[in-house]
Design a binder for these strands. Structure first.
Lengths: 233, 233
DNA sequence: TGACGAATTTGACTTAGGTCAAGGCGAGAC
DNA sequence: GTCTCGCCTTGACCTAAGTCAAATTCGTCA
């Protein structure tokens, strides 16, 4: 397989590269398609290359011995997946699966490493990407360590709401069970927590469609790390 | 200030660089000394450069609104600190302080960025470092999310024990309160957890000196993510 | 040695959130 | 329509771990 469109070379990773290089990468990349839920790689698999999400999304997560999962991050179009394994050369340190119907470009490890050594611009782009990722992971650690579920949920909803351009109603991209994994909690707890926010007048839940009547209220929960009291007469 | 010895250029970051470049960096770097507990930078401070630990250690941590802290990692000699802020250009995303009496080299941001653009080898070294750091953070997330305190403690002790060459007695580098921060728990909980491990015959505590009579037992706790039962007749 | 302050331990209590086990509900199949 | 398989919610319960407060121990400086 080959010939990915410009989706690949428009990605941040290839920003500011000479057009000739971009054309070269378009030629070299192969394409892969995943159905929702399909596994891209599993922790421990030997890494042979780098993926770039073209459309859809890829969820990267850790799995506990007893099957619970913690999502590290969900990567969207333009974002590379599997860089760590590619750089440190060994196995993937986590699992990845399609969060939606997804297409990916695949770049072979040896060739990409060689290109990194020859193109400082490419290296700088990847460095910036990794730096952003580290900041992100540091925030996940902070959240897990300091914030209770209500605050993690509020933060997640606000971020999604802003990412979708502050629509009047926010639509969840997946099931609530998946959201629970993202937040590092159990579905039952998520359900109860949504109930609390709803009773506090901060959220309206109707299936996967959510209304955020009071974004500022949500934000103050995020700041505080907790939902203070359960107001209900 | 200037003139750091070869401690700087022996670090992984400068590995395989031409001798001339190394000499140049030795000249360019300034040196800074910190007493135990002294703050190197705080979250939100504007980042102007990159530090490399020469001796001692630097603890990087997040602070919760109410003062609790979660250590992301403690960096030792040869390791860079502050790369994320330097690369993403803004403020430090976390706090850092000396975990011991520490000396650092300081490299100015603009010059280092320029060098990155000119030296693919330097860029590759930094990429490898960041990749390692991401893997590390992913493990912290996994631990916080899946493992209870006993397992985090067991894992930490095993790692420290192995890092020190499996001595018969392990000496804690700091106070137990500091260890509690590392593990993301409260001192009281750490104390009780050590008691449990001791009662289970997996640990001998005498002040800051610890004996690990049964490393395999500890390892099985790490694997399981939990201390099964409290055996005591 | 003695005394002070910090570190640590212990006890009693509270609580967020996980687990197990029923239901309830909704969207597509028929 | 109504059956039915997944999701989702709810209730009852349990437990790890945080909090507050009161000892107790330890290190060290005079």
């Amino acid at each position: 397989m080959s010939a990915t469109s410009s989706e690949l070379t428009d990605s941040y990773l290839f920003r500011d590269l000479p057009a000739a290089d971009k054309a070269e990468w378009s030629r070299l990349a192969s394409r892969r398609t995943l159905a929702v839920g399909e596994r891209l790689f599993s922790q421990g698999d030997k890494a042979t290359g780098l993926f770039v999400v073209l459309s859809g999304g890829v969820r990267v997560f850790k799995l506990s011995p007893d099957g619970r999962r913690q999502v590290l991050h969900t990567f969207g179009p333009g974002e590379p997946v599997g860089e760590v394994a590619m750089l440190s050369g060994g196995a993937y340190p986590a699992n990845a699966e399609a969060a939606a119907s997804t297409t990916l470009a695949y770049l072979e490890r040896a060739r990409f490493l060689q290109a990194l050594g020859e193109s400082p611009q490419l290296a700088m782009n990847l460095l910036a990407t990794l730096a952003g990722r580290l900041k992100l992971f540091a925030e996940v650690i902070e959240d897990l360590s300091f914030k209770e579920v209500s605050a993690r949920l509020a933060g997640h909803l606000l971020a999604a709401w802003e990412a979708q351009g502050q629509p009047s109603r926010l639509t969840l991209p997946g099931t609530k069970g998946e959201l629970a994994d993202q937040l590092g909690t159990a579905p039952e707890t998520l359900s109860r927590t949504m109930g609390k926010l709803e009773r506090a007048g901060l959220l309206q839940v109707k299936g996967r469609s959510l209304g955020l009547p009071d974004p500022e209220g949500l934000r103050s929960i995020v700041e505080a790390g907790r939902l203070e009291r359960d107001k209900e007469p």
